[in-house]
Design a protein around this nucleic acid. Structure first.
Lengths: 196, 196, 196, 196
DNA sequence: GATGAATGAGTATTCATTCAT
DNA sequence: AATGAATGAATACTCATTCAT
């Protein structure tokens, strides 16, 4: 009784996300995914129409959460308190969807052709605009951008699946605290400075 | 008779760096490079042994400069003043080798297999260690890492060859000032805080 | 409750014939047929053993009619009057089974491997022999062949489902008259000439 | 000394045309072509950018000749004598490019997507219009169309490469005479009738 | 009377690389 | 200093078919 319970679709998604996060989208071939699951490539095509659709399905949850956050954030007053709240929520989302977030950080390579690429670029742009408007001073915009990136990078570098083995094994709460601290300085400290 | 003689090697390097920076290493094919130069692919192999060697030769200057900077920095006292100096020099190097820096930032995709990947990972690690030791608090380490990354990102996003057309056209000095401001906060501000 | 029961088999045949006539046998995939019917591919296999059997079942009526016509024709005296009669009947059959006739005309591509291919080649050969014997002069044989082909072509080009939109919309009787005129000239005119 | 003299490109064209004429474009795979030439598939791609380009290059001569004939024909007076001349020339062209002509006759399957498909449809349409205008009676138009088709069919059925082995081996001149006779009746006989 | 899940063999195309000239 | 010709291995994707349920 090998536990093959109609879960192939989800197994594909898991493996695909793992590999995409590890090696990037382009470097991950369908052959690789199929082999790791011990099915044929054609089986992947039973569950998904294209490779891109696999990526889409795998980023969908993450992206949806980010989009909903952006929706909410755009309706809030743009003060320090709310920014802090938005940032905390974003860290939550990225923490849960850590592999997606990792993929997202290195994604520029892929963006542009696939529908999913555009969707995700738009979401990221909206997040950026929550923290600094398009016509804020360059330093301000760079700082808040780096705030968001620091979330991805912090989780990538010190998280449980870091590419650098010597960095694995930190306490998740410690990592989260560090990420929150740095990202907050960049995003909210920015706000305080602007208020001066 | 202004026949361009002997400069093919350099022309290859230029075109290759342009394309690598634009599209990434993997997405750039030798066919593309050769076509743009109006030579055959085989000509590339006359000048370089492999694709990876092209990349290596193209990153070499940049990497050498960074390595020399690291050499120097490791010999200096680790105080705020010297860090500021190191950072300024790094910004100089990145500013000159902006395409290499851009490539470097998205490089994780490529690192690992090719000799050049390792060399450049090592150089980046040394730079990081100049600003925060391996056993500094996580937040501190993340902050200084973000300091370096902010240099690459600032130049990539607001520099003359930004991928986002709406961000092109800023005054280089303005960009440099913003980059310096943000990177310094992250790297030196960090220092001040640590001193408290 | 007008649940369509038991008619799936026929619906498959209809859709398949439509698509085969439009795009050809090879370019029509079972997925396409299944999708258009909103059933799964496996359902097709419940009703037919192979793709080829679908084609067979779909051409069967047409082929049977042609075979019966050939049976009858072979028993008749080979004079102009009877030839005219055979031709008229053939035009009737082709007019009713216009999609089958259309498929038949372009069929050479397919003939040879599938049982149905052979059957239909044989039927066509018999029709040809009704109008000109194997040892008639080449011109005579070509002329009568063209007579039969002109039936298919006339219906294909000027019929209601012509591939060329600008040719759709002629009065069916007009088309039939033209077809009859040309085919008769080729088949019977031939006869008269032969009689001279 | 195996006679491998830079002629691969032409060998590809020959083999491709053979196979296209025999089996049709879609049913002919690049693997098949490559195997028959004892080269790899990649070698085909050294000489041609796509499969379609192979087809294009292979039909080009034929198509060019037909187009030039159409150019010329459109400038001539539309009388029986000139039509006879055009037809004779067309039979010449088809006789020389018999495989192309054969492919052309069954081409509808392929036409439409590939650039070459359109080009060739246009050429055929022009040939048709030389013999009967768009608003001639249906029978007239069908008859002249059949005139052209009878050229292809005659050569296909009775020519040296007939698909039916029992029809191979006729004297080429005899075939040509038969084709000329039937095609002329259809195309010029038509004219006489119209003149009545 | 059908579906869900899968397979094996195939397709066109691309790429880094090689080597004789 | 370079080209022309080719290869081997890979890639994303499609198709007819099977079978347990």
């Amino acid at each position: 009784m090998t536990e093959r319970t109609g879960n192939t679709r989800e197994r594909i998604q898991q493996v695909a996300l793992d590999l995409f996060a590890e090696q990037g989208y382009d470097k991950t071939s369908l052959r690789e995914i199929a082999e790791r699951l011990d099915v044929t490539k054609a089986a992947l095509y039973y569950h998904f129409k294209t490779k891109d659709e696999i990526l889409g399905s795998v980023l969908d949850d993450y992206l949806t959460e980010v989009e909903e956050l952006a929706d909410w954030a755009e309706q809030q007053p743009q003060d320090a308190e709310h920014r802090r709240e938005v940032l905390t929520r974003y860290i939550d989302i990225a923490g849960r969807g850590i592999k997606a977030a990792r993929f997202v950080q290195r994604a520029p390579e892929h963006t542009g052709q696939s529908g999913i690429g555009e969707r995700f670029m738009k979401a990221m742009k909206r997040m950026n605009l929550v923290f600094a408007s398009q016509d804020a001073p360059l330093a301000e915009r760079l700082r808040t951008s780096m705030g968001i990136i620091s979330v991805h990078m912090g989780l990538m570098i010190f998280g449980p699946e870091s590419a650098r083995p010597e960095e694995r094994g930190y306490d998740p709460d410690e990592v989260r605290a560090a990420v929150t601290e740095v990202a907050t300085e960049l995003v909210i400290g920015a706000d305080k400075r602007a208020a001066r």
